[in-house]
């Protein structure tokens, strides 16, 4: 089941990426997809300031009815949150390399 979902999302992505096709629903969906990622990043104590800024911009644009911007910023927020999660995961192992010996 899971791989199918992943493929569907992957197929949907390029369409969603084109801001021209953004609708109220697609922008809201992207914001809804970004939020849980930000929560995970925060719980790992590694939220990036540009992530928070991008989500804020997305929500502001959504309120103004600028769904193309809302969608693009939400996608950026999610991407940055995922990158910070990856960083936090890697650092759980890598931090010891920075300790002077």
């Amino acid at each position: 089941m899971k791989p199918i979902v992943a493929i569907l999302i992957a197929l949907a992505l390029p369409a969603a990426a084109s801001a021209a096709g953004a609708t109220k629903a697609s922008a809201a969906r992207e914001i809804a997809l970004a939020k849980p990622k930000l929560r995970v990043a925060a719980s790992m104590n590694d939220q990036w300031t540009p992530t928070v800024a991008a989500l804020k911009q997305a929500e502001t644009a959504e309120r103004k009815g600028d769904f193309a911007t809302a969608q693009a910023k939400a996608m950026r927020a999610r991407k940055l949150a995922e990158l910070s999660i990856a960083q936090a995961m890697q650092q759980k192992k890598l931090w010891v390399n920075e300790v002077p010996r």
Partner: peptide
């Protein structure tokens, strides 16, 4: 010693 932030720096 953990790197953090978009710029990927630790305190160290």
């Amino acid at each position: 010693y953990s790197r953090r932030g978009q710029l990927n720096f630790s305190c160290a």
